[in-house]
């Protein structure tokens, strides 16, 4: 019989404690971010789609068209083409296409890139209704980059 009453009292106490916690939280400031009006800066290591790194001095990329990124990609996202050109040692990159719809951002391409020519971009708010909008021409992108 005593257990019956202590159960009720203990239960009631736990309920009151719960109420006091939520009521206290009610008076605290919201912690959410109102997305369209505010947004976060992406961290330096954020993994967006890959892009060619622009060399500040030469104004171009470091790619030697070795094809390691293409080979290492688990999902065949990358298509590159290098050509022999007159007066230039090694191959010259003429096409670097990324199919971002298939990419899983594993970073194998970057880990396997010997000259360190590619990096993750910090773009995250990508949206489109067309698949083709995510087929990137990274060379073109590099040219447009300021």
């Amino acid at each position: 019989m005593a257990g019956y009453f202590t159960n009720i009292l203990g239960g009631a106490k736990s309920l009151v404690v719960g109420l006091s916690i939520t009521q206290r939280q009610f008076f605290k400031k919201p912690i959410t971010l109102q997305y369209p009006w505010e947004s976060l800066e992406m961290t330096p290591r954020y993994r967006g789609h890959i892009q060619l790194i622009k060399n500040a001095e030469s104004g171009t990329h470091q790619c030697i068209s070795c094809g390691m990124c293409e080979k290492s990609c688990p999902s065949d996202c990358i298509t590159i083409k290098g050509e022999k050109q007159e007066g230039v040692k090694g191959k010259v990159l003429v096409k670097y296409e990324l199919d971002f719809t298939k990419c899983s951002l594993c970073g194998q391409c970057i880990a396997n890139c010997k000259p360190g020519a590619i990096e993750f971009s910090r773009e995250y708010n990508l949206a489109s209704t067309r698949k083709e909008d995510f087929h990137y021409d990274l060379l073109k992108r590099l040219k447009e980059q300021k």
């Binding site: 961290t43 290591r45 954020y46 993994r47 899983s104 951002l105 993750f120």
Partner: peptide, 15 residues
């Protein structure tokens, strides 16, 4: 974790 691995959910961080 995002600051270290670059992703928030489907990590691919260890090699």
């Amino acid at each position: 974790l995002e600051a270290v691995t670059g992703s928030r959910l489907t990590y691919c961080y260890y090699l």
